[in-house]
Design a protein around this nucleic acid. Sequence first.
DNA 1: TATCGTCATGTTGTCAGACAACTTAGTGCT
DNA 2: AGCACTAAGTTGTCTGACAACATGACGATA
Lengths: 266, 266
Amino acid sequence: MLSDNLVLERGVAKAAAALAETGALPALDRPHSLVDEAYRRLLLQLDMNLWKVGEKLPTEKALGESLGVSRAVIREALARLRADGRIETRQGAGAFVSDRTKIAAFRTENHDNDPIQQEREILELRQIVEAGAAGLAAERRTKDDLKAIRDALESMLAALESRSDGSLADDAFHNAIARASHNTQIAKFVEFLGAQFSDSRKATWDDIGYGVGIASVGQSDHAAIYKAIEAGDAAKAKRISHSHVQRALDRIDQQTAERTTKDKHR
Amino acid sequence: MLSDNLVLERGVAKAAAALAETGALPALDRPHSLVDEAYRRLLLQLDMNLWKVGEKLPTEKALGESLGVSRAVIREALARLRADGRIETRQGAGAFVSDRTKIAAFRTENHDNDPIQQEREILELRQIVEAGAAGLAAERRTKDDLKAIRDALESMLAALESRSDGSLADDAFHNAIARASHNTQIAKFVEFLGAQFSDSRKATWDDIGYGVGIASVGQSDHAAIYKAIEAGDAAKAKRISHSHVQRALDRIDQQTAERTTKDKHR
DNA sequence: TATCGTCATGTTGTCAGACAACTTAGTGCT
DNA sequence: AGCACTAAGTTGTCTGACAACATGACGATA
């Protein structure tokens, strides 16, 4: 079942050349490298608890043979899993499934979930963390922090007036607030969460966004958040930041509702 | 400066054998594998902005020669960096520094920071997220969720009465609440943050913890959090959860204060 | 019998070389 | 200038080899 040959699966040049004569479609799509594929397979099997915690995985040789790839490919895939803290390897012994207390990295990827649902969930997490960060920022901000936030605010205003893309300034604004919390982990995490969006956030700033006026509503939120942080009002900063993201959540829910309605009438 | 040879650096068997005659201490500690070391070096150089965003890294061959390791080692290290989203590689072209919008994984590790300070920062992040999760849990919990939380609560109570280690049940309690938020990203992240602690959390449950009564105070917090979630009181669940973690933060600050005082008198 | 070395075997860690697939820059032709 | 073509350089993958280490079997010794 899981012994599918990775090489045979994707279109290799040799196979493609052979098929070209028969008129079969060329192997245009090479979605991932062999290492990527091997990594996905192994991660999937780990998530499915195919091997218990502490149990030994098959040897690199065996894994390579079952997937039809060389040991080098398997080793690079295992290196990733080890970096994620999902497995531990001991020279001469083998690779073992590590328990959950060893997780070393957080990723938002999810094999099975609906992408929209996933985006909603990330946004909700973002809402919590950014509101908390805004609260801390109100308590700890320095003059330099305020200046950084203000600069980003002005960049966004300029973008808004020229109807150009302000998503970068938007990012900078939220990151500046997170940094003002003077907690590098929070700052790093907000930056990370922001990166998980980059494309979908642009929707706020494109033509549609301007048409609906999302961007300008957002801007008044931003100004209010800044004022609260400047005034040192943590509760207020948290509240406004929270409701600011809530608007984005509501938009997602509204779109989802519209879609399901459409589906019913189809 | 950065052309140090990794192989020469760590204690290789050959070198150890040579030193054995001179009476030098044996190379007991083999801290990391070559791949780990190479990964750290490259990550450090990336964090130091040695190469600009979009800039091309040296070739695998060159990197291998400058670190004194084979291409295979470099490739596995680069595989990790690529998995983290720090670089992108194009076959035939090279490896390039990717911009911050591509970050694929969040790690708490920090090269330079004081470990205690880092623990405090993670705990603060935890405070924010867990309080938010508790709030959502109060709004969305099902009967099954409540049962899972209650089970963990009872496990902790049993551990408390038998004065045994309840850190696992403690973990289970907070994870059950996070799952009750019905947001898999939040649940995954709470689980992740919990894993970043596992050892230091045990302090709450060891002998010292019992002596000071930390565990029993925590237990009354836990019970109150459960009640609030059961009652659907989101604000209350958030508030208690927040102050629950605040106690742990205060303990850290107190320890830090004591240490600095001691340092002064030394 | 129980314990302790020793050894054979298997596995991971690392190295070296080779070729395929691909990019890039240059070269020469039109 | 623009184009096809070539050549060199780079990453992706494969293969084979050896070192370092773990583990269990075996036999010697007390």
